[in-house]
């Protein structure tokens, strides 16, 4: 049977491929602890996938590699395996698996897990993004754009607002680095970001706008914490933005053709 490529699992592979630059640089610089965290997240998510495969005949998805990577890079440091495991389990089960698996979820499971860890264990420090890892987000974004698995609107919307704010001096370099990394790892997930063109632009701009806002008014927050919170809120707004973009699209068509 001749068929196209873009079924769910191929898209998951392409997403993982796009994130490879970040993963490689991060593992290279952090070494063994990084590998341990990644392996732990991957292993735990795999167990949950098997549980849902057996209990609900839910097909497993390799997109968990991308989620595991995001959690391993961004989760608070020195957390210990038990809290980390609880956070991953909560994020993955409540954020993705109960909805029916990857593609039916509303929020990125990694975003949910990280937000949960941030609320549940406020005493632990968020990691400082390493500069080369943050830079690796640029090739990752370009790859994602070229492969078509990341929305150009989201990337450009965020980039335009972010660069403007940076030029006006509203963002510190470290915030930009954290924001760029989180943009690629969490915000650009094709499932939880806005899927319409206008929705995507606003989604990206909104994310960068939250970053600027939190950076200015959230005293004492770590850059990664700010970026994760912004990603969480931007993802929550994405369905609304899509709905609005579709309403605009329909209204314009009605005006032009008198019907849809």
């Amino acid at each position: 049977m001749t068929r196209g490529l873009w079924d769910r699992e191929t898209v998951a592979w392409l997403l993982v491929a796009a994130l490879l630059p970040v993963a490689v640089v991060w593992i290279w610089l952090e070494g063994a602890p990084a590998v341990t965290r990644l392996a732990f997240a991957f292993f735990l998510m795999g167990i949950w996938q098997i549980v849902f495969l057996i209990a609900r005949a839910q097909p497993p998805s390799l997109s968990m590699i991308a989620s595991a990577l995001a959690i391993a890079i961004l989760a608070p440091e020195d957390l210990g395996l038990l809290p980390l495991g609880i956070g991953i389990s909560f994020g993955f089960v409540a954020g993705e698996l109960v909805f029916g698996g990857w593609g039916r979820n509303i929020l990125n499971p990694a975003t949910v897990a990280l937000a949960f860890l941030g609320f549940a264990y406020p005493a632990f420090d968020w990691p400082q993004p390493l500069v080369p890892v943050a830079w690796a987000a640029i090739p990752a974004a370009l790859l994602g754009l070229a492969l078509g698995v990341m929305s150009g609107g989201v990337l450009l919307g965020a980039a335009i607002v972010g660069v403007t704010a940076a030029l006006l001096g509203a963002l510190s370099p470290i915030s930009i680095e954290a924001a760029g990394l989180v943009l690629v790892l969490l915000v650009c997930d094709p499932v939880s970001s806005a899927s319409t063109r206008i929705g995507g632009w606003v989604n990206g701009a909104l994310y960068a706008g939250f970053i600027v806002l939190f950076d200015a008014y959230w005293a004492g927050a770590a850059p990664i914490q700010i970026a994760v919170a912004a990603a969480f809120l931007a993802a929550l707004a994405a369905p609304l933005l899509d709905e609005a973009a579709i309403a605009i699209w329909i209204a314009r068509r009605r005006k032009r053709h008198g019907r849809t």
Binding site: R8, G100, P190
Partner: peptide, 9 residues
């Protein structure tokens, strides 16, 4: 399996 929105779609 669900559809994932991509540029190809």
């Amino acid at each position: 399996k669900p559809m994932i929105p991509t540029a190809a779609l």
